[in-house]
């Protein structure tokens, strides 16, 4: 099992290093997805299968999609289409694909093997997590709900298309 952990850790570090060094945001996103997948793998190794699932669904799924949407929104027009061609070159997607393949292989192996956990401690399944969440951490849940609500309202407000608005101080500055 150790070897699986080290391989995954290596994949995580490499892909994360690639994220922060890419020039093209979409490339960086591809590597970030790999990074998140490998992290999910580590969670799985640590016996937190539920967290691993959430990681994949919410992070790699929802949040990354948001990023991609925004990047697409910001690159409108023909330029984007030309860029699209460039992105889909093999050279670009081969790296993430290899790493994804490594992770897939690991996953298959781990699922087929009997002892898929690093530690002796019993697995912490979704049930105790849910119990803890809605008993001890109920207030935290409520606060998180409020936070999400506020974030939604805020995002809806900030994201509106507006003309360029300058604060009156900046306006005066410009006039001067």
């Amino acid at each position: 099992m150790d070897i699986a952990f080290y391989i995954t850790a290596a994949v995580t570090l490499i892909s994360t290093g690639m994220v922060i060094t890419r020039h093209n945001p979409v490339h960086a996103l591809l590597y970030l997805v790999i990074s998140l997948l490998s992290l999910a793998m580590i969670f799985f190794l640590l016996g937190a299968a539920f967290a691993a699932l959430l990681e994949i669904i919410i992070y790699a799924g929802a949040i990354m999609v948001l990023f991609i949407f925004v990047i697409m929104l910001l690159n409108l027009g023909e330029e984007t289409a030309a860029q699209e061609k460039k992105w889909l070159k093999t050279r670009i997607w081969i790296g993430p694909a290899i790493m994804a393949g490594v992770l897939l292989f690991e996953l298959c192996y781990l699922i087929s093997s009997s002892d898929a956990v690093l530690y002796d401690q019993p697995n912490v399944g979704p049930r105790p997590v849910a119990l803890a969440l809605f008993r001890e951490y109920l207030i935290g849940v409520e606060l998180a709900a409020m936070l999400l609500m506020a974030a939604m309202v805020g995002a809806a407000h900030i994201g509106r298309h507006k003309k360029m608005v300058l604060h009156r101080f900046l306006k005066e500055k410009e006039i001067q």
């Binding site: 937190a48 948001l66 935290g140």
Partner: peptide, 25 residues
């Protein structure tokens, strides 16, 4: 072997979602 770590992770997820939505906007 405690569930608290995962609970915190869930909170971090929620916070990250909020942060990303505002940040992207």
């Amino acid at each position: 072997g405690q569930p608290d770590g995962q609970v915190m992770f869930i909170f971090i997820l929620a916070m990250a979602a909020a942060e990303v939505s505002i940040g992207l906007a």
